[in-house]
Design a protein around this nucleic acid. Structure first.
Lengths: 208, 208
DNA sequence: GAATAGATAGCACGATCGTTCGATCTAAGA
DNA sequence: TCTTAGATCGAACGATCGTGCTATCTATTC
């Protein structure tokens, strides 16, 4: 696969690499709280005590800053949710483990404004622009992952053969998402516990 | 109760009243799509072909514009969801009716960017400022409404006595909320149908 | 029909936005 | 050690932000 973009990328020096990382960390934090739309070069610069042009030079456009922030957040999500979530025997255990990994990621405030992608989903659900498309693709991936794990569990006989994997994935995701929003809104772990409860009963109802 | 604010309100002339309404309608549309944060006096003016100061004069601060937009959206939500949702015999029928009213309000695109308050919830879930507090209060009201209807149904013997009304309200709301986001993201009525399905099974599991 | 007060427009302000440019500093390879 | 290219800064641009002031127009009241 061609990487048309990085073909003209400048080399990175070690100090620049580090600053780049620091900027993206602040950008993820800010975007998770106030949205990708209120991510601002000037604001990042002020917050990090770097000049505006010093920040800007790392991305050379606001669009690139946004794209790289999303990519960085995806890497964090993979590391903090997906990978530990899959660290369980294939089947129902993996489904439960992934859901629990998500809820713990919300509770640990890996992003202080709650799940980065829940924020993105709400911000770019209206169909317009490249970010919308990336968000739509990302959601498809997440729902597809859940659905795949559920199908495996079904194939292993851990769930009723009649279970609709797509529908169950929707219901689990719904519980996770609302748990995220309400936990952030009220700073109350009772909200994530409601999510846990909902997931338990949805799964229990689907076992043979 | 004192209305400290309106005590110094100027009288409204008929033409001004109409413009005021037109502005708020555009503001609700815009905010539901791009968020209350990207609601801008200049943008409204451009879109309505009114001067910036012509728009501004109606609110005299951005904060007031936002507050009045939220209030107007609340009125629409009451008219389009709550009132028709309650137009059913008290009990389980009312619960089902309210959920269906919500899903139809999403599908009809009463707000083109999906449920106005789902947008607000995501945008102001991080705890800060007056809007956050209003959103938190609003959510309490919506969840409380659902919970109250569920409790009534339970008292009438339409639901298992052991049912946790708060938990069931959470699960119904989760299905409604995700249905909203995914319907807007994909413009696909299959998403709201998944919400309907989730609600049916959650209720069915709770009946005696 | 005159008086009045609200509706709207035009212009200007300081702040911040994304972005560009040129100057200076410094890490890394020759 | 010298050279070079990336890192960072300061200053400036045009655009847009929220907001104020002044002037003109017009709906409403007497």
């Amino acid at each position: 696969m061609l990487d048309a973009e990085s073909s003209e990328e400048p080399q990175r020096r070690s100090d620049g690499e580090q600053t780049h990382t620091v900027i993206l960390e602040a950008a993820m934090r800010l975007a998770s709280i106030e949205g990708l739309g209120s991510l601002t070069v000037g604001r990042l610069a002020r917050e990090l005590d770097i000049s505006k042009s010093g920040v800007f030079a790392h991305f050379r456009s606001k669009e690139r800053l946004q794209r790289e922030t999303i990519d960085a957040a995806q890497a964090v999500f993979d590391r903090e949710v997906v990978r530990p979530g899959l660290a369980a025997p294939a089947g129902l255990a993996q489904v439960e483990n992934l859901c629990e990994a998500y809820l713990r990621y919300v509770e640990r405030r890996v992003f202080p404004g709650g799940c980065f992608f829940a924020q993105l989903l709400a911000e770019y659900d209206a169909p317009a622009g490249a970010i919308h498309d990336a968000v739509a693709e990302g959601q498809r991936g997440w729902l597809g992952l859940l659905e795949g794990l559920i199908t495996t569990a079904k194939d292993q006989g851990e769930l009723h053969p009649a279970i609709d994997a797509t529908q169950l994935a929707f219901e689990l995701y719904a519980a996770l998402e609302l748990a995220n929003y309400l936990f952030i809104l009220y700073s109350d772990p009772a909200m994530t516990d409601r999510g846990r409860h909902a997931i338990r009963t949805a799964i229990a109802r689907s076992t043979p």
